[in-house]
Design a protein around this nucleic acid. Sequence first.
DNA 1: CGTCCGTCCGACCGTTCGGTAGATTCGCCC
DNA 2: GGGCGAATCTACCGAACGGTCGGACGGACG
Lengths: 214, 214
Amino acid sequence: MRTSAERGTRERILEVAEASLADDGYHGMRLHRIAERVGIQKASLFHYFPSKEHLYRAVLDEGLDETEQTLRQVIDAEGTPLEKIRLLVEAYVDMVAVHPGRTKILLRQSLGDVPSGDQQTLGAQRLLSAVAKFISEGQRAQIFAPIDPVALVLGVVGMVAFFFTSAPVLAPAWCGHEGNATSINKIKRHVVEVVRRCLEFGDHRVAAAKLATV
Amino acid sequence: MRTSAERGTRERILEVAEASLADDGYHGMRLHRIAERVGIQKASLFHYFPSKEHLYRAVLDEGLDETEQTLRQVIDAEGTPLEKIRLLVEAYVDMVAVHPGRTKILLRQSLGDVPSGDQQTLGAQRLLSAVAKFISEGQRAQIFAPIDPVALVLGVVGMVAFFFTSAPVLAPAWCGHEGNATSINKIKRHVVEVVRRCLEFGDHRVAAAKLATV
DNA sequence: CGTCCGTCCGACCGTTCGGTAGATTCGCCC
DNA sequence: GGGCGAATCTACCGAACGGTCGGACGGACG
């Protein structure tokens, strides 16, 4: 059978579009180039997506959905708050490491890359407030130190995104090449430690020992 | 004298281009739109800049130079390492708060927004290693806890950039409108506290008390 | 007054872009 | 095998883009 639609033309288009979108942004993405890389005629793109913007939305939504699902699983899993925070950070770092392109696109989206459309990202907002709520519950239970939960989460998101998408330009020597397992672990350890230090009490009363397993 | 070049047409072009570049990115910036906003004919742009890319470089370089100068002053100033770190963070936050457009452009640049040109940003690299070196000196003197200096600086840069450029989309309620003084202070205090917690020793032997003035 | 120069303008050019129209191929089901 | 719809093709379109050209304006200077 193995026709040209081996894995579904639509999905191949989405893959190529994701890469192109990550590298060049919405305005830089060229439809003829995508068609070329997929091995298809440009007009055929419009059979699957009504317009360039719809294609963009499709890529964006798919990335957001998968990210939200993955992190929701961690939040809703069993475990102490302390463990869950660590797992959450690690899952997020892994996700960004596996899909740096997706992260770039989300960063660009939040920079306002797409014309005429600022809504969306509702999933991301929901996710953010879920994590923040989880943290503040831990704070009420005196498990976490009283740092601003929203600020902490936003900061971590920005930090991790920056490590994988932008930092290679600033510190190519420090960051390995994309996907380098050693540097991923280095980043993961660093972020986990920062979060730990932000959430533990200054006198090590509670958190340090339990989170020290990192 | 007050000709049409009241404040220098070239500078007005740079201003408008900076705003446009921040909002739309390199590929999204349209020369005719810039000319329109400046109140000038599109052809006149080419009298001051040979090409779109040269205009972009001019905006980029100007922003980088000023940022580097400002932070260098703080690094080279008098003061204990502890105070200087806090001043450095505050100066950086202020700089981003005053020039969010510039920060957006730098973020976009590090995302690879400009065609055919990855070098540059040498100034940023120099600045980064200068700050990292400063921190590691403090660590050798046992003033700072032994956290990875490069990772810390990169993380702070990403965090702050994210707060001002991207977070408003994710948490519009949390972040005030751009330039809101209250939220700037909130962000500043948060970042300073994160850095403090990352650099202080777990047992509060040294750093906490001295930095607690924040 | 003439002319020189920095500044700016109106009109235009070649290319490329996103998008459309219509024909053709291919697999499938009756 | 004949009809049908999905998928893909070739060919084309209007608009918008970055960029060029030659000239008009106006002050400075001799």
